[in-house]
Design a protein around this nucleic acid. Sequence first.
DNA 1: TCCCTTGTACTGACTGGTCAGTGCAAAAAG
DNA 2: CTTTTTGCACTGACCAGTCAGTACAAGGGA
Lengths: 217, 217
Amino acid sequence: MNTHTPERGTIAPMDSSNTRRDATRRKLFEAAVTLIAEQGFSSTTVDEIAERAGVAKGTVYYNFASKNVLFEELLRHGIELLATSLQAAADEVADRGGSRIDALDAMIRAGLDFISRYPALTQLYVAELWRTNRAWQSTLMVVRERAITVVENVLREAVAQEELSEEIDIPLTASALFGMVLVAALDWQSYQPDRSLDEVHAALSRLLQGRVTGRPA
Amino acid sequence: MNTHTPERGTIAPMDSSNTRRDATRRKLFEAAVTLIAEQGFSSTTVDEIAERAGVAKGTVYYNFASKNVLFEELLRHGIELLATSLQAAADEVADRGGSRIDALDAMIRAGLDFISRYPALTQLYVAELWRTNRAWQSTLMVVRERAITVVENVLREAVAQEELSEEIDIPLTASALFGMVLVAALDWQSYQPDRSLDEVHAALSRLLQGRVTGRPA
DNA sequence: TCCCTTGTACTGACTGGTCAGTGCAAAAAG
DNA sequence: CTTTTTGCACTGACCAGTCAGTACAAGGGA
């Protein structure tokens, strides 16, 4: 098994060795995320990942128990980034006293921001999320939950404050909104890269606020 | 062996196939679509596909030049089914003089119907659509175009008839709508299978028509 | 000062297994 | 007789994971 480094217990000048390892792990994450997004998990080889990270193959196995574990840690790491950034966007609006609808709008923007910053991570996530029978199935469920919950909470608050009709179906609406942002953003990146983030945001915002069906007032 | 019963989720419409060869090809499509949806393209073996289809391995290669070609033809065949069914839904509404908004609503329902009938095909499609650097990249672009165009056309007509604000961004709105339906449906199937199609449809319809933000005017 | 030990991080050749695709003779099917 | 399918042995490339060994920094003893 893995000899765990006792990072807190040691008195030693903390990071001279620890940072080296972390840097390696980060390089591996980075290499893995792009390769897997491009080619898929199964057709990406550990050799490729190692090469792209500028590291020997053995190093991958020194740092991760297996290819699967590397991937799972990648997923967990990534979703934490997303959930945090969505939550931050919602909180920021709440702090300055904005409505919950404004918070949703801010989350759409945060989502778009995230996707344009980490496109590979997003691709990889979409490609795996609805698969069945895969080893990391349970990890994915947790991961999805983490993100969807943030959206659901804001929807719930909005209903409580009567900003949204209480007839909406919270779980379904949350996943629809999530999907709307996800797919629009991926399509934007892949097929309409000339558009600006503002344009995409405006289009989605309009959809959220029911201003698609014209007739202002 | 396993006389694979053609249950729900089959690819083929009840199209009366003529030749013996077509029947074999259909069996292979059917076997391939479920296996690839579950496991991904690269980790599905040709031996598995042949076995599930109840056919010798040599037969696969007698009917398709390679595993890649089999998959590409599968994608093309599948998207044709989807585009046709979306178009039919839109036309049906037009024929009986409904509004273009009603047509969009009907397409949402047709989309949901399709996804619940062919879940495996949908999963597989989502998993591959935004990948880069894959052999069938160009096939996918055509395939996406075929489906999105149907939606865009209805949006364009709706704008022309002033049912929709002329400020909407047609391509972006089309892909957002597409994604909304896609993700909501997949999430429904995978994580909330207890919901009825009507519930899902109602939630999406509400979102489309801007009835989320309460206040019935 | 120099030598020796210890622990951590990394290396890359190697192994055992998997899988796409081939070749072919013979049997069904039409 | 032609087309299609079968069954099965075989090949060669490819790949996850292993393992014996290297590099090097830090500490201790003399």
